[in-house]
Design a protein around this nucleic acid. Structure first.
Lengths: 168, 168
DNA sequence: TATTGTTATACTCTATAACTATA
DNA sequence: TATAGTTATAGAGTATAACAATA
């Protein structure tokens, strides 16, 4: 949230950012929340997301973009609608995202030759480079998670996937 | 997201809502994302959150409010700053939230007698009732998660807590 | 008729900074 | 000086609906 761009920056911020919230441990009684997986799911995701944003934000990269770029790289020529499905968002959400990528020269867009309604998305070399950066951050970040959850990672991911797949 | 209020509604919506996204399974290659716990953490939380929103939204309750109300109930007289800490948000985020509660008569706010800067928050009977509703939804919702993760729930929550606590 | 993508619009959630009133 | 709470403001993220072009 509120990062700045790497080359193509707009509103560069001094990076200050850093705990405003989460200063103290909540000494409050959580009640029923204690037993709800959903509650901790939220907390964990929130913490993970912020930590990753901190890491990648230093390089001007918005965390939400990561998955999209990754998917484009692994699926060159993918359409916007397909991308939207892959990240589980509406297609109207993808439009500004793609425009941002185009402005930053991270992605090339061509009109499909088989279906003139749709466009194909592919990474540019710059896009590859940025994604490489991001990937390193993601790896670093995930190593922290690894350190926290240890050898149960596989099982942990399996459960997360199951939740993501079944809860719709 | 975008629910309507129960009694105090403003912009009542026909509840239509219901899959627009997540229609098809992504047939795309996820690449490195496959191995990242953070990625699935996001997906799982997203799915869980939406499912809960669907459930509670039918009764005009925003999912984000649940934890706040719960904490107020279990900690009557809690201050806004303390509440902010408990839900890991900035105090400025809590102000409109509390105002909403006051408008809906879910919470009573009194000036603290020991510290005239701060306010004490307590649930009204209506607040208790609404929270009771929410709790039933949360339980139903969590039962679904239970069904998905089975007997590993305890361990699963333990890992989520650990991530939430350590990744800051 | 259905789908791709865009646009207009709106709403939620969140934070920072500046402020006040207390402490 | 520091803290509790408010306000003004801003930005990310997302969605719905209506639309044009194409299938």
């Amino acid at each position: 949230m509120s990062q700045s761009q790497p080359e193509t920056q707009k509103n560069q911020q001094p990076v200050r950012r850093r705990r405003t919230v989460r200063t103290a441990r909540p000494q409050v009684d959580l009640g029923v929340l204690e037993g709800l997986a959903g509650f901790y799911l939220r907390q964990a995701q929130d913490a993970s997301f912020r930590a990753f944003a901190r890491l990648s934000g230093q390089h001007g990269l918005k965390p939400g973009r990561f998955a999209a770029l990754m998917i484009i790289r692994r699926n060159p020529g993918i359409s916007q609608v397909a991308l939207a499905r892959a990240i589980a968002r509406d297609k109207s959400t993808v439009t500004p995202l793609v425009q941002e990528f185009l402005e930053q020269d991270l992605v090339i867009r061509n009109q499909s030759k088989v279906d003139r309604r749709s466009f194909t998305l592919t990474l540019t070399p710059a896009g590859e480079a940025v994604l490489g950066e991001l990937e390193r951050h993601a790896t670093t970040h995930d190593r922290k998670i690894d350190a926290i959850i240890g050898k149960q990672k596989t099982e942990f991911i399996r459960l997360l996937r199951k939740i993501g797949d079944h809860l719709r």
